[in-house]
Design a protein around this nucleic acid. Structure first.
Length: 109
DNA sequence: TTCGTGACGTGCA
DNA sequence: GTGCACGCCACGA
């Protein structure tokens, strides 16, 4: 499998994240068939355009926080989009227990 | 070609 | 709860 295929799988997995939910890089990597390679997910997102159809804003790190610089425009945009979908930020973090996406129970909650 | 860096995760102290 | 070390892969210099 080539690197491009991995990126496509990553994007496809991210598209499955329902609105109002967030998934971690490691979770995306695992669902994409790339366990332990969360770094590739981050790199794939870095190469992604802001106007892409991939809901990149629903991807957060294991801490439930945005991995981008908090003061940066992308981070603010991501946070604003998540809040618009109903996601509540506790400080600079998101409660993964409440808003974390569970692929086995696609239905919310 | 090797080396360093990066939207990360897990394990352990 | 936090901080550090190691691992993983892709990409540019």
């Amino acid at each position: 499998m080539s690197g491009d295929d991995r990126r496509r799988r990553i994007y496809a997995t991210i598209r499955r994240i329902p609105p109002g939910r967030v998934a971690t890089y490691g979770q995306i990597a695992r669902l994409a068939g790339l366990p332990g390679q969360a770094r590739l997910v981050g790199y794939a997102l870095a190469a992604l355009d802001a106007d892409s159809d991939v809901p990149w804003h629903r991807v957060v790190n294991a801490r439930g926080a945005i991995s981008l610089p908090p003061k940066g425009h992308p981070a603010l945009r991501q946070r604003a989009r998540l809040e618009a979908e109903g996601v509540v930020f506790t400080g600079d973090r998101v409660s993964r227990a409440r808003f974390g996406w569970n692929p086995r129970r696609t239905t919310s909650r």
